[in-house]
């Protein structure tokens, strides 16, 4: 006779619920080719849902996101390249549709700003340090506080 072990059942159920796949809202069937499926997943995580602008189409439950997933799925299954699919979306929705905008004249500042800010910061730091170093050392003064009078 087997004994019912409630703890095991609960643990098992919890594990099933916590498995990432069981929460997926994407009804599109997985593609047979793992490389294509990976491209599909990469793209849906990189394309913005324009109705709910701070979600990707992979995260969003909006009907438009479902439509875009279906279109991307069909294009990936049909053998279109990553670049072709992105161009398809850009032609219709503009640069905003990609979370990672392409490097072009209008986005060059977006891509270069972090590097430029980092360089500006490093330069400022360098100048400050260099100037400090050029000052006469006050090391001795710190180590030998001025003698107090009256003792």
């Amino acid at each position: 006779m087997t004994r019912v072990r409630p703890l095991r059942w609960i643990t098992g159920l919890l594990l099933v619920l916590l498995a990432p796949g069981s929460w997926a809202l994407d009804p599109e069937p997985p593609l047979a080719d793992p490389a294509r499926q990976a491209l599909y997943e990469q793209l849906t995580h990189e394309v913005r849902c324009l109705v709910c602008q701070n979600q990707t189409v992979a995260d969003s439950t909006a009907p438009l996101a479902a439509d875009l997933r279906r279109e991307i799925h069909a294009m990936v299954a049909g053998g279109r390249s990553e670049d072709e699919i992105k161009t398809f979306l850009l032609d219709r929705y503009g640069d905003f549709v990609l979370y990672r905008p392409r490097l072009q004249a209008s986005t060059v500042m977006l891509w270069l700003a972090p590097v430029l800010l980092l360089l500006a910061g490093a330069l400022t730091l360098g100048v400050v340090v260099w100037r400090r170093a050029a000052l006469p050392s006050d090391q001795d003064a710190d180590e030998n506080p001025p003698a107090t009078t009256g003792t």
């Binding site: 009907p63 438009l64 219709r92």
Partner: peptide, 10 residues
């Protein structure tokens, strides 16, 4: 919603 996607409707 296919035609709407072609028109960039959101």
């Amino acid at each position: 919603g296919r035609a709407a996607i072609d028109w960039g409707v959101y």
